[in-house]
Write a protein that binds this DNA or RNA. Structure first.
Lengths: 215, 215
DNA sequence: CCCTCATTCCCGCGTTCGCGTGATTTTGCC
DNA sequence: GGCAAAATCACGCGAACGCGGGAATGAGGG
């Protein structure tokens, strides 16, 4: 078998002891190489433009100076291909949420064993997203919540169709033309929709439809 | 040490061989007990009302008859406390999405080793959500997408305020009264908002604001 | 000092909307 | 075959809206 391509890893972590042992372990792994350890995002950002960027970055969220969330945004803006794994002691929804939106590919708790962190690095190289189960639970909960249960207001299929076009911003006349009916018909549908959704304006109907995911 | 409380597991899986070896392994695990194996959701739903429900259900998505997505909805409706882990060969976004929204607490691929499934069962009991890394990747991507980067359209603070009230469904006059200005002023603000958001109607402005999370 | 930008206000025209009230046809179901 | 629900169409009124103009004010920066 030919030797595998060696993947490069950077660590951004202010605890020198933790960063050091992590780097050591990575370098003792055949397919991985940790060439750089930074103790702040600012340092890493300087290097990432000058040197060739790594494949993976392990980053702490609670860093002095620029925090990890802001750091990941900047790094991803410069090098979108880099995979960033967040290492954190925080498990609050806000941080998880922000990190994911900023483009994190993984989210591990600092209590993770060094071995499991190595596993995560390998997992990310094959298209996975290593996520601590407790954190995954929160992500699932957030996901289920933001796309929460759509209440059924008993809209007929035709009414849903009208509502759909309403959300696209079409006027009564435009909807009428699309559905090959008269504008009076659309008017009636609209009023029935208003009644069923218990609203009294176009905007209210649309906001309700969007927020409660009525399609 | 006192003996740990034994957690009960049900399996809903049409492949009898797979279900059997899984059940065997679960029963050979000290803290777990698999008492029931079903080959369809319908069967399980009958039992869940009659017998005492389990702590965890391992469920296939691709079942004959009622599929797993519908199954999880019904089960959660009857027994919200039960934790459901999806076992699937599907990795498409639609199924993942639906399962999460239906209340799944975990999402594993069928290629997972039996041992790792046991690990997952234990993980779920301590508040985790075992998710296959590849699937986790898709979830993260979906999450990042649905809550995508809010573009800044350069709205002034006053305009944001007007937009906010717009989303509440207030009329120009009503907004004017709330902000102690004339309706003409609101009119101007609206037109400026339309220009900045590149829309030409109330509804379009509101949908854009909601979808892109402008607050 | 001037220029820009945000904010405020005003007028008018034509269109659309919300809503009340009516009717007819089509569809599905018992 | 009959009945209820859904879908279709119609008229009219008053209000709100989109959009085109124009203009005054004040705060902040080059």
């Amino acid at each position: 078998m030919g030797k595998q391509h060696i993947r490069t890893v950077w660590i951004i972590e202010d605890s020198r002891g933790f960063a050091g042992s992590l780097a050591e372990l990575i370098n003792s792994t055949e397919s991985l190489s940790c060439q750089q350890v930074f103790h702040s995002c600012e340092d890493a950002l300087v290097c990432i433009e000058r040197d060739s960027p790594p494949d993976i970055i392990l980053m702490d969220i609670g860093l002095p100076g620029m925090n990890g969330i802001e750091g990941i945004k900047r790094i991803k803006a410069l090098v979108p291909a880099v995979q960033v794994i967040m290492l954190t002691v925080f498990e609050d929804n806000e941080n998880i949420f922000l990190a994911i939106r900023a483009g994190a590919s993984g989210y591990l708790h600092k209590s993770a064993t060094l071995d499991s962190i190595i596993d995560s690095l390998e997992s990310i190289l094959v298209g996975g997203a290593p996520v601590n189960p407790n954190i995954a639970r929160k992500i699932l909960a957030m996901f289920a919540q933001t796309h929460e249960t759509k209440t059924d207001y008993g809209l007929s299929s035709r009414e849903k169709e009208v509502l759909q076009h309403l959300m696209e911003g079409l006027s009564k006349k435009q909807i009428a033309d699309k559905l090959f009916v008269s504008h009076n018909t659309i008017d009636t549908h609209l009023r029935n929709i208003y009644t069923k959704l218990q609203v009294n304006s176009r905007v209210n109907a649309v906001t309700k439809a969007l927020k409660e995911n009525i399609l």
